[in-house]
Amino acid sequence: MYSTEIVLEAVLNGLLTGGVYALVALGLTLVYGVLHIINFAHGALLTCAMFMVWAAWAWLGIDPYAAVLVVGPLMFGLGYGMQRLVIGPASRHDDGNILLVTLGLAIVLENALLAGFKSDTRTVATDYALEVVSIGPLLLSQPRLVGFAVTIVMTALLWLVLNRTDIGKAIRAVAREKTGARLVGIDVDHVYAVTFGIGCVCLAVAASLLMPTFYVNPRIGGAFVLVAFTIVVLGGMGSVVGALLGGLLIGAVESLSSLYLGDSLGQLGIFLIFIVVLLVRPTGLFGARV
């Protein structure tokens, strides 16, 4: 069996990784909570954001962390435009249609990236990617610590936006009662698109945190989608704080189960938790709504 230090480090690693998962899930849960749609294009959008970060670094020499200042607004625009011009009009708010449209968008995005960037796996080389912080016998990856901190800040920011700003209040109003919100003069389509845009900004942040240590190819987003869904369910669909806590929990569980079961069977741990939570407590462990 493993020594305490190893187990401790695995848990810490898992929590740090879980932070990034949470960011990916944050966008998903927000879109679900407000638009009540399962966004199949979420993975492809993450890939998009990762390619943007990569391009900013490779073509313009912008540091991946700094790139969020460029990629964030771009992703917001992309998300806003997609919801306003494609998903909304094409789906006419029918569940089956939304599903198909987001699926169609995922196909379009993924293959447009394939056509544009080719299938190569691309990486970003930075000086700090391999830095570690040693605490006693533990070696913690510095980029992951940064990522974790940013996730906490992002969650707090998102919570503040939702609870303390006018647009946030509008979003919550639309999430709760669409027709009512429209009656009091809220532009529902605009709110939908803004929500989608904010979800995409979360992905931009996640992408800039991932790129220093991870890689990107046109299909990579898929690797995060299922785990993000799990987190969304665990945290309660639509709950921002739930997504954060769910992300951390899943990160730790994944880390421990991969330590003891291996990374392949370790996935089972996540799916089984997912199924059990859905069957027993579908509103999620921390089931609060937006």
Binding site: V86, A90, S91, N97, L100, V101, L103, G104, L105, A106, I107, V108, E110, N111, A112, L113, L114, A115, S119, P218
Partner: peptide
């Protein structure tokens, strides 16, 4: 590669 599937996706969205 990929262009054909882009067209496929676009047509799919248009159909819907």
């Amino acid at each position: 590669p990929g262009i054909d599937l882009v067209v496929f996706g676009v047509v799919l969205i248009l159909v819907i």
